[in-house]
Design a protein around this nucleic acid. Structure first.
Lengths: 183, 183, 183, 183
DNA sequence: TATGAATGAGGTTTCATTCAT
DNA sequence: CATGAATGAAACCTCATTCAT
């Protein structure tokens, strides 16, 4: 790992633990075992480092989750969407913890842009095919749940314990509901 | 309004706008039109001010929402819970924006404690009475949605537009679902 | 002397000795026997301190040199102008040394504005009355000399030795020249 | 142009624009389109680069102005001296702008040494031959004007406009004065 | 109660310089 | 000869907090 990468991952860890504001560049450099000045050589300023951390984080997440939403039938697509936050979180907990910390930072709230928005219309279509009379609202409801789940996972370690069961419960609920819609 | 109160509400505004870390005591004093030193006379330190702000916020919220969850039948209790975040947010948006900002601050995440936890078992009981086979999980699901809704309201102004409709949609969904459970 | 004033004069000394860029705020605070942070409380930033130093300097100079250019006849006005840099420098050497150091700083080159420009047209008029055929150019020449003299005084200690004689020589030269013009 | 030369001229430009202290080695390297490290290979340190810049500058100036003060009769020598700063400045404005910026830098103030001092005694002699009763002081006066002119040219673009006329005026003044001295 | 003056500790950033390649 | 990577020291500035009045 190059020193530049060390800095990115050290920053990701610390931003995840303590948030952006409470993490000093001195601390990041220390954790990366690198001089503080190197941060500014590579990333211009602290915000530039944040950009790099976010970019790296998204790249990592996307790399390991290509095609994860592909599925033949609409029902299994709905299932995929419901388990999405759980699956993503387990693979890159650090990145999502950081995202939760950065929730209000102007630069950071692109999780919505990257993961939620693109899914919204596809999900609505699937739900329409599955017979839902108000697929847009139903889609919005599901995504609200999804959005809540990864944030709770990131913030509350207790939530993790029952999270898998909850996901399963929601998936099953939709399986049943959909059967009834189609009757 | 006393100077002490001015400080509390000035702090609430600024914490809501910019978060705790990015708000300086100098700024709070300026907005309250009061000397910076007064913060420390009244609240010992910045954290003490935060305590006071939270206390005041909860007091305000509770004062205007007494008995808001009381209801005769289980179904209308479920409806009350679902609309809870919307109703609370509209009355005290500043406080909930601040809560969203403070999400990771150790002192602040008592919204759960104060509003969600006490509801959980009652909600589960209501759902049991309404014929749900897994009332605990269903309760958890509803509260997950509820938790997401107020945070989205606080953070995303676009969400506010359709929020009322979404709430209505969810309430209706449970009305129908419950009828079917009881058939 | 208040701490604020201490800072202004400490800064004036150090700017005079080493220039603006080579003087650190830490150093100024040390010389003023005051905390570095106080600079920023009182003057916002280093440039603000420079503003204050210049303002103070001009105030001091003007205070002790009111009406110094008043004179009944044109010839003695010319004499006053010629000796102006010498007289001013002797009273506030520090300020003029600082001005010499700041020559290229955008904020600082107001010596021209404050002392030279206002004199130019009056001097030209006096010279016209004294029979000069090209009073504007002659005025410009005299002011060029004047401008050079204070800068040399400020920068070169050797120049100080003969400066008084040089001033006298120039004054006498104009006395003679003017007699001839008027013949 | 070799990379070394690129560095020298890039530095001269930037020192002229912003002064020595406000010019960073990083900036110089960028303008020269060369690596920063090369500065230290070639010139040991930033001061070494300044030395090289000065040396180069003087060499350039001297090269294009050999024998410029040679003249058969004393009067035209006086004329040459008076126009010296104007002539020199027009050929190498960058170098003289830099000299003005460096006025207080210990290394830089050798313009006096190189150009003014050697002229002083010759000028005094010429003036003696021309009948001046106090040739040393008159020489000093002329050199004071000369010293002022190049600095004003370097610092104030407005001065440039009328500079040529002013020079002419001064030359003519001495022509007339000298005639009268010799009557 | 209320304030203006003051500060120590720490934050981000800049800079000249070194070194391995 | 030339560079990219790296750094220690120091620069300017911010901040929560203290204290005398």
């Amino acid at each position: 790992m190059t020193k530049k990468e060390s800095l990115v991952y050290a920053a990701m860890e610390l931003f995840a633990e303590n948030g952006f504001e409470k993490t000093s560049t001195a601390n990041i450099a220390k954790r990366a075992q690198v001089s503080e000045a190197l941060i500014f050589k590579h990333f211009t300023n602290k915000d530039g480092l944040l950009d790099a951390v976010l970019k790296q984080g998204y790249a990592d997440v996307l790399k390991s989750n290509k095609n994860m939403l592909e599925s033949k039938d609409p029902l299994s697509f709905v299932h995929r969407v419901i388990e999405l936050p759980y699956v993503l979180y387990l693979k890159h907990p650090l990145f999502w913890k950081m995202q939760a910390q950065l929730q209000t930072h102007p630069k950071a709230n692109h999780a919505q842009e990257h993961f939620v928005k693109p899914v919204k219309s596809i999900l609505a279509n699937s739900l329409r095919n599955l017979g839902y009379s108000n697929p847009d609202k139903e889609s919005e409801l599901i995504l609200t749940v999804v959005d809540s789940v990864w944030k709770k996972l990131a913030v509350d370690d207790n939530f993790n314990i029952g999270a898998k069961d909850l996901i399963k419960y929601i998936q099953d609920k939709y399986t049943i509901e959909i059967k009834q819609e189609n009757k």
